[in-house]
Nucleic acid binder design. Structure first.
Lengths: 227, 227
DNA sequence: GTCTATATCGGGATAGAC
DNA sequence: GTCTATCCCGATATAGAC
């Protein structure tokens, strides 16, 4: 593997575990057993690493969000499974991706303030996420023509979903600091879907119920170091 | 006003506008037209300022949250107005308070990592917020004995409210960077209350409707530099 | 591409006069 | 309490040999 890529990987990893601003360029070099000079040969500095890392995140996120927003609905092509199942998959993928760059979501403000391009990019991503949530919500509630009130409720529903999606990782980490990551994602998806529950057809509830059972079982089994 | 207090005030202000980590101790001194040495006479350094600032935030927040959690319901003593109106007031007060220390909520992770006492304190606050939201939610949905499913929905509702309450400021700032602060708070309260809408008695909806109208009017008037 | 050595710089922190 | 002057350190960044 190329040194340049190893730097990116190592940096992201350190940022995630230690917190972005507790990691110096030299720390990254030390962690990889290369010299600081070498690191500076590949990147102009920590800033340049941040920009590169964010560019990747952005690219990957757009790759996931883009298709979801296309008119035919989640994942463009032929639909498979029920609406809830597809939503579940979609939300999982997004959360998984965010988890890989979680240092970013713990302190969005800091990086946005330092780098205008990140500021713009992140804004754009949030807007995309909101659009995607609108599509997901629309698929989930489906059905009858909305009254004015339902219209307003729908908008706030999409907002809630998008907000939860954006901040679930840090929020959850505060409430359950040592929880297994996989479980955190599952609970996040469940939390978001629960938000839609009151608007959904009765038959759809079955899937959410199953998820809840599953989640309880996981918690009980203790293999995920929960609470 | 004592220099010590002016330092706290100025620091908080600078942190809010420039971002915590773009502000050096010397910047604070410069902004107040005192010498760095003077600042270090009053505080051992930036760290000590942070701790002091957080202690205040914590104290004020507990003063608001504590009574809300008491069994009689929101604001302890005799209840005034409808449940929605009281919730509205309560949520406004909390958001207003958070707004005063918004630098903190833009980058929770950074400060929590640096100061164990802030980490503990912030965790505690989030738990309190969640408890308070449970009380608010209970007052709002009121009524009949819940089935299992409603029970689960209720829990996730309280979580959604608490999460929205915690991250509304940064989220909203990303979506509407230049929005007037007052409007941001109003919209936040409305957003949280909308979350409960599907669970509420029909008659309660009237108030939320009014709020929405009001909000539309404010946006239209343009005096709040919206979008 | 990678290393070692070194220059630079900004912010944190202290000493001592007033 | 407040100032000036100064020190110190850690992180960034570069030069030049291998």
């Amino acid at each position: 593997m190329k040194t340049r890529d190893r730097i990116l990987l190592t940096a992201c990893d350190l940022f995630n575990t230690l917190g972005e601003h507790n990691v110096a360029a030299s720390d990254i070099a030390a962690e990889m057993d290369i010299s600081p000079g070498n690191l500076y040969y590949h990147f102009k500095g920590k800033d340049s690493i941040h920009l590169s890392l964010f560019a990747t995140l952005q690219r990957e996120m757009i790759a996931v969000l883009g298709p979801a927003i296309q008119t035919p609905g989640l994942f463009g092509e032929q639909k498979q499974g029920s609406a809830v199942e597809r939503s579940w998959l979609f939300l999982s993928v997004v959360l998984e991706l965010m988890l890989g760059y979680r240092y970013f979501y713990e302190n969005p403000g800091s990086l946005m303030l330092r780098f205008p391009e990140i500021d713009r990019g992140f804004r754009r991503l949030v807007h995309l996420k909101l659009s995607a949530c609108e599509v997901v919500a629309a698929e989930l509630v489906a059905g009858e023509a909305p009254t004015d009130r339902q219209e307003a409720d729908f908008n706030s529903l999409a907002n809630t979903m998008s907000l939860t999606l954006s901040y679930w990782l840090p929020y959850s980490r505060i409430l359950y600091p040592r929880e297994d990551r996989t479980l955190t994602i599952h609970r996040g998806v469940l939390q978001i879907l629960s938000t839609c529950a009151p608007y959904m057809e009765a038959e759809q509830h079955g899937f959410i119920e199953e998820c809840r059972q599953l989640y309880s079982a996981m918690l009980a089994s203790g293999e995920y170091g929960g609470v």
